[in-house]
Structures are given as C-alpha cells and as structure tokens.
Design a protein around this nucleic acid. Structure first.
Length: 566
RNA sequence: GCGCCCAUAGCUCAGUGGAUAGAGUGUCUGCCUCCGGAGCAGAAGGUCGCAGGUUCGAAUCCUGCUGGGCGCGCCA
C-alpha cells in the first residue's frame, strides 16, 4: 500500500526531471524500497537515483537531489525525505500511516496475510514420499515439516495447493520387505535361515512377522514361497504406511492425497508416458534396454527406462507420475527431496521438458540432511540401535512444537544440527517458547483487562493515543507481515517466517517490559482512550502471531505452563 | 575425477548487489513495590575460508583454489 503510493510519487517526480532535462533515460526503473536498518536513514530507502545515474551517466547525488526536489506533496504519507551519499534517498513515513494499517489488520483478522499472488493457480507439493519399508527418520521429518509449511505458505499466498505423498508400493523394495518378513517368520517357526544383509534389519520386521503369523500362519505355509513373500510384502507395506500416516499426523503433517505407484502399473500409465517420450523422439533401444535421451536436456548421461530383463525402472514410474501431475492440471509442481537425491534432479527435469511441459512450472527443493546431536555429540544415524533415531522418538522427546520449530529455524539448503538436549531446554535458549510466550502474555493482558473491568471493545479506537516510538515500530512490524509471506513464496524459504516471528516477539517483549519502569508504557491505565488504543495494538500483534504460528503448525497458547508445574 | 550444498562473532545461525554485516546463545555490567522474570536494557566479541575479477557499491554475482557434507548403477 505504502509502496504503491510512493511508487506513484517517485514516478511523477522522475518524469518531471526528464521533462526538465535534468537527465534522460529510456524507461523508468522499478522503485525498490528497502526498510532502513538505522533510524537516521528513515523508514524506507531507495537506490533509484544510483540506478538512474549509471544509465544516464550523471552523478547519483545530483539525481537524488533533483528527484527529491520534484516530489509532489502528499499529505499524511511522507513526513520527511533526505538524500545521503552516495545517492540514497531516505524516507520518513508519517507514523499515523503505520497506525492506520492496524485497522486493516484488525478487520482482516485471521485473513490478514492472505495474498493473491498465486492468483488461484493450482500447485502441487510432493513431500516425504518415503518408501513404506520402515519408520520415518529425522531426515524425513525435516522434509515433512518443510513441505507442510511450504504448502501452507503457498495456500496463504493464493495458490490452490495439493499436498501429496508418493507411495512406492511396487517393485524391488517391497519384494525385499516381503522377503524380510517371510524370513523372520520362518525364524519364529524355529527354522534356521540365513538372513541376508540387503534385507531390512530393524526389530519392527520381527514384530510385523509375528503379527502376520497370528492371523495367517497356515496360509503362509500353504502358499508357494513367491506368493507368501508377496503376501508378506503387501501386509507389511500397508501396516507400515499406516504407521507413517499416524506418525505424520502427530507431527501435524496431513497430506491431501497419497498417490500409489501401483496405480501407474495397473492402468498402463507408464507405457503411455514412454509412448509420449517416444512420440517426441527421445527414446531409443540399446543392448536390449530402452533408453531415454536425457542428455538432450542437460543430463549427464542417458537413462534406462526398461531394463534388458524387461522390467521397468523406478525412473520410468516417476516419469509417469509426473506426467500424471501435469495432466491433472497443476500449474506448478514442486518436489521436495532429500539432498541425497540431488543427482536425480536433472533427469527428472529432462523428462518433464521432454514431454512438453513448461520448464518453469517444475521445481525441486533439496533438503539438506540432519545431524542428530546430544549435548554437542553426534548421535550415530547409521546404527539401528541408536536410541533417538526415528522421527517419532525425537518428537516424543522434545514435543511437537519444538520439533517443528527446529526444522524451520534453518535454511533448508544448510545442514541442520538438531541437538536433543538443547531442544529439550525450556528456558531462554529455545526460541519457540519465547515466541509462544509473547502470545500468551498478550492473552494474559486481555484476561487482566477483563478482570479489571476495562472495556475491551476495540471497534472504536483513537489511534492518536499511540504516541510512543516503540508503538509505531510495532505497528510497522505487523504491517510487514504480508511482505514476509511474499518473500517466503518467492524464495520457497519458510524459515524467513520463523525469523520474522522472532523479531516481532522481541519487539513486543521489549515494548511490554518497559511498562515495569515507565508508566507511559503500561497497557492498562486509568486513561480509557490510551488503554483501548494499546489493547488494540496488542490485539494486532496477537493476530499476526497467531496467523504466522498457524502457518508453521505451531500452537499459540493462551498461557504458558511449565512442565514441572504440570 | 565430475555435479550439487555449505564455510559469517567463542558456539548455533540470519542476511534474494546497498550505507557502520545482524540475531540467539555464551561471557561481563545493570534493572522488578505495579499488566507473567520463560523477562528487559547495555557492553565486549568479525581479515564474512583464501586469491583474483565485474560494479558507483560485493558476505551476496563470476573465475580459480582450500576445507567439510551429499551424490554420481540396466539399485531403490
């Protein structure tokens, strides 16, 4: 809003400068406004004079001065404008304008921060997609929370989002799973078997074998070995997928759709996808196998779709799945993969482009791995015996909110050290509590106000009663929220929201705490107009805290309860 | 060997070409008669891995190094 108004003012001024012959350029550059880091640089700053200077071959400072001199007057917008070397234009906004924004926020309520940049386009976010052969580990957890929150952010930004989980329930891995179960079953029957290294080693395999045995012992003996293994595989995969879903649900991650790979096989979708590539001339045969010429689209080497033994590769199924995605009408398809799949990106992109879909509509986000730590020591992830290895164990140990926040407080393309002992600490070192505390404190003030019989009717508030710099600052900060959402969408980086929340919480705590020593800062006073205005400001802070926490999938408690008090 | 990611305060990390590089934590010093001290204010702490280059301006972009992580199958 403010941006647009300023854009207009500057455009007018620049046009006048051109007309007056101060400088000459072909087109007017877009006005970039940055929030100033230092108070003496005003609220906003623009570098437009320097941009123009480089094009017009003039001194930036002269251009800045000319632009400022020609800025039209507009009441209630700009309070002051100054020029600083080498050519910055610093703008002080009328504080009343930030305060006015509060009314919009209050009116929008939980809709505040909902944007239309997505314009209702259909967006699919695929994440987790772990094979149903074992429990989710902490790395899956990071991808799960990232994908969930990215989906929430895209939704808030105006996309129509589908969160999806691709289930690899066909092929070799499920057969191996079935064999693992079957062999463990034989063991429980007292048979001596050699348990191969490539089979799944976890204890859960034994548990599943026992469980299946209870209902289907006779059947397993009556079937031919291959059929028995298939039965074991189906049983275990279904069971494990159920566990994964429950695990995700408890982490606050809900997918809209579980897409089963099996479907692609039963309705010949893979054949159709290969045919599609063939029509475009990107398929050839070599040494009895069927190849996709992915090198034509920037991949390192061509890839096999059908092996010489006649079996399809997983890549073939993945291509069919992605064809399916685009055929369902998604304008944007975002895959979220672990960093260990980086080598897979180029071939998938190649396939998407080769089938004739827009390159820009497809994106892959790689999530770097997680190092699980305990009090500074790395907890081994390779040994199955390690205690806190699964997502479930970690979540149960630290709690859902902390678990999610730790995954969200870091850029996804940096590795994450997840320290269990640090996450477990409830006091200052743990930002999630600090943010929640800000929310709870506001709730507490409202309870107090009610007790004291203060009117909490916020429909008519005199904003002029907010006359402290910290109050303008807070108003400005909550006004930044939609921009933060926009940035998160543009960069696909939800951690920016976490950092914003921290900043907002800090600004609020600082403001609130001054009330201890300075009566002007106390929220509830015997001045009804000031009290109402301050409550209104707090309410707006609370709205933003709530909306942002909701996107992150973290609770916004009305009060904080210490664990030892429970 | 090739590809991708990372390197910023003691530690963990922000910083999508802008001004004197910021938080949290740790260390040190203060602060409460009163709305929640899980708090607040302040101080100290930096050759932004190294070397070049592009630019009015580089932690940010380009090139080459160094160090760490991941990946390079007719595996999944």
């Amino acid at each position: 809003m403010i941006d647009i108004k300023l854009q207009n003012l500057f455009e007018k001024s620049i046009k006048k400068c051109i007309k007056d012959g101060v400088f000459s350029i072909d087109s007017i550059p877009k006005l970039e406004l940055a929030t100033s880091k230092r108070p003496e640089h005003g609220d906003l700053a623009t570098n437009i004079a320097m941009i123009i200077a480089s094009r017009a071959k003039k001194k930036p400072i002269d251009i800045a001065n000319a632009i400022v001199a020609n800025l039209p007057e507009e009441k209630g917008l700009v309070k002051n404008v100054t020029v600083a070397a080498p050519g910055f234009i610093n703008i002080v906004i009328d504080p009343a304008l930030f305060l006015e924004q509060l009314r919009e926020i209050y009116a929008a309520g939980e809709k505040y921060g909902v944007l239309d940049v997505g314009k209702g386009k259909k967006c699919q976010v695929e994440f987790v997609s772990a094979n149903p052969t074992g429990p989710l580990h902490i790395g899956h957890g990071r991808g799960a929370v990232y994908g969930d929150v990215l989906g929430n952010i895209m939704k808030a930004a105006g996309y129509e989002v589908t969160k999806e989980y691709y289930v690899n329930d066909a092929g070799g891995q499920i057969r191996t799973l079935g064999r693992s179960i079957y062999l463990r079953f034989l063991e429980t029957e007292g048979k001596k078997v050699a348990y191969p290294e490539e089979c799944y080693q976890g204890d859960y395999i034994v548990d599943l074998a026992r469980e299946l045995s209870q209902t289907s012992r006779a059947k397993l003996f009556s079937l031919a070995e291959d059929d028995a293994i298939e039965l074991c595989g189906e049983f275990a995969a279904t069971k494990i997928l159920g566990e994964i879903k429950r695990d995700l649900a408890e982490t606050g991650v809900i997918h809209d759709l579980y897409f089963h790979e099996n479907r692609l096989h039963t309705d010949a979708a893979i054949d159709r996808a290969i045919a599609e590539l063939k029509n475009h001339g990107h398929i050839y045969e070599h040494e009895g196998a069927l190849w996709f010429r992915s090198t034509a689209f920037g991949d390192d080497k061509d890839r096999v779709l059908k092996k010489s033994d006649g079996e399809l590769t997983y890549f073939a199924a993945d291509i069919a799945y992605h064809k399916n995605k685009f055929d369902r009408g998604f304008d944007r398809v975002i895959d979220i993969w672990g960093a260990d799949h980086a080598g897979y990106v180029e071939r998938m992109r190649a396939a998407v482009v080769a089938m004739g879909y827009q390159k820009e509509s497809y994106g892959v986000v790689l999530i770097q791995l997680v190092n699980l730590m305990r009090a500074g020591e790395v907890v081994s992830m390779s040994t199955r015996s390690a205690t806190y290895e699964t997502l479930e164990d970690v979540r149960k140990y630290v709690g859902r909110d902390v678990c999610r926040y730790f995954f969200l407080m870091r850029s996804h393309n940096a590795q994450l050290d997840f320290d269990l002992e640090l996450a477990k600490k409830e006091t200052p070192e743990n930002p999630v509590f600090y943010i929640q505390y800000a929310h709870a404190r506001i709730a507490s003030v409202f309870r107090k106000a009610k007790e004291a019989g203060v009117s909490t009717d916020l429909s008519k508030v005199d904003l002029a009663a907010l006359d402290l710099p910290e109050e303008w600052q807070l108003a400005r900060l909550v006004g930044d929220y939609p921009k933060v959402i926009q940035d998160c969408v543009a960069t696909l980086e939800p951690h920016r929201l976490s950092f914003y929340l921290m900043e907002l919480a800090k600004a609020f705590q600082g403001y609130y705490s001054r009330g201890r020593s300075d009566a002007r800062y106390r929220i509830i006073s015997n001045d009804p107009a000031r009290t109402a205005a301050k409550l209104f400001l707090l309410k707006n802070c609370q709205i933003v805290l709530q909306n942002a926490l909701k996107i992150l999938g973290i609770s916004a408690p009305e009060e904080m309860v210490r664990e030892e008090d429970e």
